[in-house]
Write a protein that binds this DNA or RNA. Structure first.
Lengths: 114, 114
DNA sequence: AAAGAATACATTGCTATACTATGTGCTATT
DNA sequence: AATAGCACATAGTATAGCAATGTATTCTTT
């Protein structure tokens, strides 16, 4: 049985991390919601609940970082694909810079002490 | 003027990150609250508000990861020093492992695509 | 000596976001 | 016919960072 603190902590770490991950993901290629969950789970072992992803994508749209478009399928339910806007791209760049700094900061503290 | 989204995002990234940073910091050496804020700001450029740190330290104590002790000063206000417990040490190790995985996951997505 | 800055603790109220639970409707499998 | 999977979505709850505010002592500046 996992420590309860650790589980809560992991959930907290995801706050902020998830939007970063999702923006990175759709920066390579248009993806739809369900696919995002699957693909992120497969490549990173990070699980995003559906109740987390859909509100998150709507926030990104509301903030002007992404747009979406419905794409009809030959068979099956239509999919909503997400596309990064120009503002989304430049914001993502800022986020990448900050993340690199953060990584370095953490490394400093974990490896060399403070 | 900085993007509003970025500022909110940075604040969200701190959720979880700060407890990790603080636990790492006191794992090297006993530190008191005000000192933690100063020292983390100096070495990592991450600013922790006082209204963030003190409740955070109390949570860590409540969870059994740290203890604290008052130390009187020859001159000046007494300081509350924080010490990592055994449980805190092992929890920190789990957190370090998870953080490494997270770093790798993010690297995968930012560098090589998904 | 008085005023202000710095040290050092702490709480309250606000806000943002992840998660569980739940719901809808279509398609494929058994 | 029933179940699992696909694909969207919302409501309610809990957590944690932050600004604002408060208390009290000590140091620095004028």
């Amino acid at each position: 049985m996992e420590n309860e603190f650790i589980n809560k902590w992991k959930s907290q770490v995801k706050k902020g991390t998830l939007s970063f991950i999702v923006l990175n993901a759709i920066s390579k290629k248009e993806l739809y919601g369900y696919e995002l969950i699957e693909i992120i789970k497969k490549t990173t072992a990070i699980e995003i609940a559906e109740g987390t992803l859909y509100p998150l994508m709507n926030r990104l749209k509301k903030e002007g970082l992404a747009t979406s478009k419905w794409v009809e399928q030959e068979s099956g339910i239509p999919r909503k694909y997400y596309v990064l806007t120009e503002e989304g791209k430049s914001t993502l760049q800022h986020m990448r810079n900050y993340w690199e700094e953060l990584e370095l900061s953490i490394k400093k503290i974990t490896n060399h002490g403070i």
